[in-house]
Amino acid sequence: MTILTVNAGSSSLKFALYPVNGTIADSATLAGTVEGLESDAPLALSWRSGDQRGQARIDKVADDPFQDALKALQSLLQQALPGRDLQAVAHRVVHGGEAYRDAVRVDEDILSRLGELSPLAPLHQPHNIEGIRAFGRAFPEVPHIACFDTAFHAGIPDVEHLFALPRALGKQGIRRYGFHGLSYQYLMQKLNQLSGRAQGRLVMAHLGNGASLCGALQGQSLATTMGFSALDGLMMGTRSGSLDAGVLLHLMAQGWDHARLQDLLYRKSGLLGVSGISADMRRLRASEVADADLAIRMFTHRVTREAGAMAACLGGLDVLAFTGGIGEHDAVLRAEVCDRLKFLGVILDHEKNRLHTGAQAVSLHEAASTVEVWMIPTDEGRVAAQAAAALLQAQA
């Protein structure tokens, strides 16, 4: 038996096949990405299966780019699935709101409810839903299961999830939800395998185009930087992160409407907005433009500041873990954050940190460090496959 996992975004589609033999396999038998969904250029398909790698360019011919992506994937999936039954398709969905705190088999009613949450995650939710519909048409005979990024944070305490607003608004669902939950759940699983301190005081940093921190104790999320929407907390690739609400009131008084504010906060801020160049940290590192350096320094400062706040909420720090595109590959960022957290007992092995970028989980702390430091490549697909398998078993 096999579960196909799908992470449909605005510009890319990630997919993976996980064998099911009582439990989900540690790694996918096939995994890949289709990039270029939003551009006019041909789609770029890349995949890996064991030691094999492949790439292909696909011209767009359909009105729906997901259909072109699916057509490109069909032969690849057919080759990978002979002799295997496709048990389900598990979809990453960013926002589950108050209603969905566990994986759920989707139908039209659920898709409609999830669509109502799109204003809270406009860069993700509409594309997650579009991906479910497209794959539903391609694989109508199997269950499609939504797995939510918000679920991992569902139990955070009231002092963390409530805003300082009238309680009536909180009862309407205006609260902190938190995101990147599938990634944090995977990090928890790996740390439980790798570290004797995994049940202690953890700060996990998912740093990429979307970025957040999570403070966890005994495997449970206690605090997180993202909030009601995917805008709060850290500065990100194109998102502002935490912002004085008075700025928005000021812009509204100048005549800015909802659409213009949403575009500013989600698409034109963050690393891109400050640098004026790019949302890509690699490009900013290579640039000699002063504002590129400023954007990097601001991003590093925000990560350090929020990591300190997480440690305060936890009453100290036992483990610091990095993941995500920046967290896994940017050794300079990891070094600067760790050096600024020395007051908490973090002592980084700088040579080891410099040599390890993204290939596999690795510890990066010196023996004298009272805090363990880890770099762990995330695998949100495996967690989604686990959730789907658990739901199917419970409903059997």
Rank of each mutant, 00 (worst) to 15 (best):
T323A: 01
R305T: 13
H301L: 08
R334I: 02
A309E: 14
A335F: 08
H329G: 00
F322L: 03
R340K: 12
R340V: 02
R302W: 10
L317A: 02
I326H: 04
V303E: 12
K342F: 12
E328P: 04
C338M: 07
G308S: 06
T300F: 02
V346S: 05
K342T: 15
V303F: 11
G315D: 02
T304H: 03
G315W: 01
L341H: 07
I347C: 14
H329C: 00
A312Q: 11
G345L: 11
A311R: 05
R305N: 14
C313D: 11
F322H: 06
A321G: 03
H329F: 01
V337F: 11
T304V: 13
G315Q: 02
I347W: 12
D339L: 11
T300Y: 07
C338I: 06
V303N: 07
R302H: 14
E306H: 14
H329I: 00
A312G: 12
C313I: 15
T300D: 11
D318I: 04
R302L: 07
C338E: 07
T323G: 01
G325C: 01
V337G: 09
V303Y: 07
G345W: 05
T300N: 10
G324H: 05
T300H: 11
A331P: 01
C338R: 01
E306I: 13
